[in-house]
């Protein structure tokens, strides 16, 4: 295990590979050291039609793709932003295409397009910005069949030994929602806000803190309960 890790570190430092599959595999391999984790998250939602208080919650993850959001109060996360693990972004059969190199912030990255081969998936295309020095994903742009395009940006704490982020920014475009008109507020305001037509940009900021990694989380945590 340690050996494998060392080998990969060696490879990453020395080879500036442009083989997309290699780069992707390196990321997946690095992430595989995280078997599970539990983390405190702070969620800030910045969506025009969705006024939600800043929330505090706990997020649980277990390989390969189990996630669970738990909170005493109300907490909401974008479905597509709840699980940022490379293993869930890059899964099934796919074709990886190296696109270009690009610097995000101060970090040089390889931009790789990942096209799922499986027709059943709703994802048409994932574009992944991989920091191939640290073997972490810094950005993902996903185009879906039904949900439009969304972007996940990930920020890391350099000191942290696991490839887990300290912050995620989830950006998306949504069409104006048609809300059910029952129990709707109809105050006599003449100046009630009307949204302009067309898609609306929304952002969700998630801060991660207090990671507890590889504590052998029980599967029961991920079972659906009524909480």
């Amino acid at each position: 295990m340690l050996l494998i890790l060392l080998v990969f570190l060696f490879v990453n430092i020395n080879a500036q590979s442009t083989d997309p599959n290699e780069i992707v595999r390196a990321v997946l391999n690095k992430f595989s050291q995280v078997r599970d984790y539990e983390v405190d998250i702070d969620i800030k939602v910045d969506v025009e039609f969705l006024k939600v208080p800043d929330a505090r919650a706990k997020l649980y993850f277990k390989q390969p793709d189990k996630v669970k959001l738990k909170s005493e109060g109300f907490a909401l996360l974008p479905k597509d932003g709840i699980d940022f693990s490379p293993s869930s972004i890059i899964k099934g059969n796919y074709t990886a295409i190296f696109e270009r190199r690009e610097i995000i912030g101060e970090f040089p990255t390889s931009v790789i397009k990942i096209v799922p081969i499986n027709e059943n998936t709703s994802v048409i295309l994932n574009t992944v910005w991989i920091d191939d020095k640290s073997n972490i994903i810094r950005k993902v742009e996903t185009t879906t069949k039904t949900q439009g395009t969304y972007t996940i940006e990930l920020f890391y704490d350099n000191e942290f030994k696991y490839p887990l982020p300290k912050q995620m920014i989830f950006s998306f475009n949504v069409d104006k929602m048609n809300l059910p008109q029952t129990f709707t507020n109809t105050t006599p305001k003449s100046n009630r806000k009307k949204f302009k037509d067309g898609p609306i940009l929304g952002k969700v900021y998630v801060n991660y803190s207090n990671f507890k990694v590889n504590k052998n989380l029980s599967d029961t945590i991920f079972e659906n309960d009524k909480e």
Partner: peptide, 9 residues
Amino acid sequence: IIDGQMIII
């Protein structure tokens, strides 16, 4: 609460 076209929590 659903307030017009907004959801408020």
